[in-house]
Amino acid sequence: MRKLLFLLSLGMVLLACDRANRPYPFPPSPLGEVPEPEHNPTTVYGVELGRKLFFDPRLSSTTRVNCVSCHFPVRAFSDGRKLTSMGVSGNRLLRHSPALFNLAWTEGTFWDGGAKNLESQVFGPITHPDEMGMDLTKLTERLQADEEYRKLFKKAWGTDSITTVLIARSLAQYERTLISDKSFYDRVKAGKAEGNAQWQAGYSLYQSHCSNCHTEGLFTDNCYHNNGLDTAFLDRRFELIYMGRYRITGDSTDIGKFKTPALRNLGFTAPFMHDGRLRDLDAVLQHYNEGIQPSATLDSTLPQGGLHLSKEELAQLKYFLLSLNDSTFVGR
């Protein structure tokens, strides 16, 4: 009897555990506690569902394009292309696919910060005619017809009635788990490794010349800057897409400003800039060293004409920057 009661109760607990969702156990991170919106706390089954959606080409009108088509995990979720044409239309996009990591700390996504949070951002690529080109009503119908999805939504959300809002929230949850914090730099900071002289020199150069915008830790200030790529931003086509943050705020002081990308994983995420114009890290260093173009909204912390570092200093800086690569994150 005793045994039976015990087994019965154990069974009940197991059943309850299997059914009940629970908070996602984020591992402790030097980046701090992972921020989550109150209305969409990250859960184990939410993340599991989000991951499946992220890799599922049925999210696109042609069933051939998934999120991974432009965000390869082995490239820190970037795609190695200047401007991709992997979307359903085959048309070249107007901006470069950004790498995806540490998004939980991001305050606005897209190169101009137009999307205010991850939950809202996901509707952009899913519906864009040159990306996944999907009608949201069709998307819910398609997933609703799939028994496995009904089960996964039931597990994650307690309902098998699939909505676009739950799709968005699941994807956002998965994206929040893409945390990159295991670079050599992080090991040095944790006292588990020591940087050599070249690294130390590069670190100082970074601190004096880059950290204003690429704030240490996340290596981005989550803000928008004109980093001197062009002398003018006059092209108003495509709903002002070439004009940077101005497109969102309508404030002329934001013309030509784009979101600061994080400096982590540079070894995996070339080419660089919002339009992918700089093919590798050397080109980026060269731009800041001698290619900065003057314009009305050029960031005041950037010296006109460039940093003018020596060859040796550039090598030191590059050495440090590449120590921000997180090979664990990209599965290498």
Binding site: G114, K116, S120, H128
Partner: peptide
């Protein structure tokens, strides 16, 4: 709802 064409995705 985001489904009814009464929202902007590029500028939330």
């Amino acid at each position: 709802s985001p489904n009814v064409g009464m929202s902007w995705t590029w500028a939330t």
